[in-house]
């Protein structure tokens, strides 16, 4: 009886501690989310989307330059990262079954997925910024693309493998060449999953700051020339938040809010895609 009591008391203690720690953890996280939403909405107004950066204290300041810069950098990164990631993932899933090479690529790519992003920034600095002689939007896009490739590769690989091999065999039996089987059968079957992977990949790199600090650097004015230094929401956020000026700090929160909502939105859309697919 006492042994039983001891077990029950122990159970109650541990379960209470677990629940408390869950609430502590969630409490902190919702505190941060609350701060983000509260400060973000308070700082948000139409002028932010219309005006460019301005010196502190100047009323007409906004984030248009950073929004446009962020969009361009992520767009270019996506244009480079997605095709490369999908093709490499296709190789692993469709051509590399059981091969040592595919296994190695899969492992190394998995490790790269968690590698420090600031190191990627240093690498791109060395191969693009130094030869060009100055910071550029291209360098930022290249850094983000390098971070994106392993993510897209992994999800493509996983999602293509979920396509039943009977589908492939049926297509082969009809005499279709392998590339046609992949493009018309496998890709079609894995569409929702691959698309989700792409959305999550974009969401992941859109929030990256460290690799942009010394690649695309920053610019306080509107610039659509990718070969020049370019503002991004993340770097702007960092610069404005660490500045002593209150109006800049407010803009920093607005940038944080806009970016976080964009990223959360992509994540939610990606999840819905998968859910709908599973529901079918």
């Amino acid at each position: 009886m006492t042994y039983r009591n001891k077990r029950i008391i122990m159970n109650n203690i541990i379960m209470t501690l677990s629940t408390i720690s869950a609430f502590i953890g969630l409490g902190f996280l919702f505190w941060i989310l609350g701060v983000l939403v509260f400060n973000g909405i308070e700082a948000l107004n139409l002028a932010i989307f219309i005006n460019e950066g301005a010196p502190p204290g100047y009323e007409q300041s906004g984030l248009k330059h950073a929004l446009v810069g962020q969009l361009l950098i992520v767009l270019y990164a996506t244009a480079i990262g997605v095709p490369l990631g999908v093709m490499a993932g296709t190789y692993l899933s469709e051509y590399g079954q059981g091969s040592k090479l595919a296994e190695t690529i899969r492992d190394i790519s998995d490790i790269m997925m968690s590698a420090p992003s600031i190191v990627i920034g240093a690498f791109v600095y060395a191969i693009i910024v130094i030869p060009m002689g100055h910071f550029s939007g291209y360098a930022g896009a290249a850094a983000l693309a390098i971070i994106m490739i392993p993510i897209i590769l992994r999800t493509t690989d996983d999602m293509l493998q979920l396509v039943p091999s009977t589908l492939r065999e049926a297509a082969f039996a009809l005499g279709a060449p392998k590339y046609k089987v992949i493009i018309q059968v496998v890709y079609r079957g894995a569409k929702a999953g691959v698309l989700t992977g792409i959305l999550l990949g974009i969401a992941r790199v859109a929030g990256e700051t460290a690799p942009l600090l010394f690649t695309s650097f920053n610019d306080n004015f509107m610039n659509t020339d990718m070969s020049e230094a370019m503002a991004s929401l993340t770097v702007t956020m960092y610069n404005y938040a660490t500045s002593p000026y209150e109006d800049w700090q407010r803009l920093g929160w607005a940038a944080a809010f806009i970016l976080s909502m964009f990223i959360l939105g992509l994540n939610i859309i990606g999840r819905l895609f998968l859910l709908r697919k599973r529901g079918k």
Binding site: L26, W31, M237, A241, L264
Partner: peptide, 24 residues
């Protein structure tokens, strides 16, 4: 819901955590 919100919080850019840390 709790599981998904934790996963979503993992997606919030780390720069936001840094900003929160600095100001709050």
């Amino acid at each position: 819901p709790v599981g998904v919100s934790i996963e979503l919080l993992a997606a919030i850019p780390s720069v936001v955590y840094g900003m929160w840390g600095l100001f709050y």
